[in-house]
């Protein structure tokens, strides 16, 4: 075991995979690093040498974006919309998932089908209908309207992930709680939710990342500058005759940074939640 020839052979076998992974890392990580460096350089510096590293780090660009380009407004709009949507998605999704996983009632299959079929339809297909509906109900160009759309659009995925996890919780736990005298809601609150924390973490993280970066619904359903979310903020730097690349990059970094931090802290928990119960 472990002869030099065998060891060399295993290295040779792994080389194509390593090369592929390095290439993939460069392709996926490269643009991000490029934007990060551009965010610290001025636009003239970028046009002079697009791929150079910063000769001087311009931290003031972030202050300018935050204070003079309305990014603080966009940031807090995003926080309000995304946090509200994620909280409501989690609460509603968990309740729906618990019912679908635990109870057998007339029409449960139809309800499950209707809810989960929402994942099949692409957002582009629904955007016009949603525009009409929000206009009719006076929710067009409001953060409330956007929150409602986000919840409706992502409830299916949330229910899908949580139902799979909740269904694996042994029925005996619920029977024992019933015999102890707990009501259905108390069982949901005291048993399902605490045990389902890994899956809840997963859906919170996933929903946060997706909604924080969401652009299509936001650009169609919000028109006023004061209502814009961060992904729309970059449009601030895009005129009909000019493109402030440097500030664009700075704006992108402000948008990306919270997601990077979130993923850095919670990715392991998220992956555990997605794979929990896959193997007994």
């Amino acid at each position: 075991m472990g002869s030099p020839a065998a060891s060399w052979l295993s290295h040779v076998r792994r080389t194509p995979l390593l090369l592929f992974l390095m290439l993939y890392t460069v392709i996926s990580g490269g643009p991000f690093l490029w934007v990060a460096t551009m965010s610290l350089r001025t636009t003239p510096e970028i046009f002079a040498a697009p791929y150079a590293l910063p000769s001087r780090i311009h931290w003031e660009k972030f202050v300018e974006a935050w204070t003079k380009s309305n990014y603080s407004t966009y940031f807090w709009n995003s926080v309000l919309v995304v946090v509200t949507a994620v909280v409501l998605l989690t609460v509603l999704g968990a309740m729906v998932a618990h019912c679908l996983a635990r109870y057998r009632f007339r029409g449960s299959r139809a309800v499950r089908f209707v809810i989960l079929s929402g994942m099949v339809l692409p957002p582009q297909l629904m955007i016009l209908s949603l525009f009409q509906i929000l206009l009719e109900y006076g929710l067009y160009n409001t953060l409330t309207g956007l929150i409602v759309v986000y919840i409706a659009g992502h409830l299916a995925m949330t229910v899908y992930i949580l139902e799979g996890f909740f269904a694996q919780i042994p029925q005996d736990l619920f029977d024992a709680a019933r015999m102890d005298g707990y009501s259905d809601f108390e069982i949901f609150w005291r048993i399902t939710l605490p045990i389902g924390v890994p899956a809840l973490f997963t859906t919170v993280t996933l929903n946060f990342i997706i909604l924080w970066n969401e652009f299509l619904y936001a650009v169609v359903l919000l028109t006023e500058d004061d209502k814009r979310t961060l992904p729309l903020g970059i449009m601030h730097f895009m005129g009909s005759h000019q493109l402030d690349v440097g500030m664009l990059a700075t704006g992108l970094m402000i948008t990306i940074a919270p997601i990077i931090l979130l993923y850095a802290f919670f990715s392991e928990t998220m992956i555990k939640g997605m794979t929990a119960g896959a193997v007994r």
């Binding site: 042994p170 005996d172 709680a177 019933r178 015999m179 102890d180 005298g181 048993i191 045990i195």
Partner: peptide
């Protein structure tokens, strides 16, 4: 809950997020 019956399940049905003390006390608290 009103039949005054206690049941021991095949899978033990212990609440994994509670300590032994909390498991034993769970029904009494209710």
């Amino acid at each position: 809950k009103d039949r005054d019956i206690a049941m021991v399940f095949q899978s033990y049905a212990l609440y994994p997020h509670m300590t032994v003390y909390q498991n034993l006390a769970f029904g009494l608290r209710r």
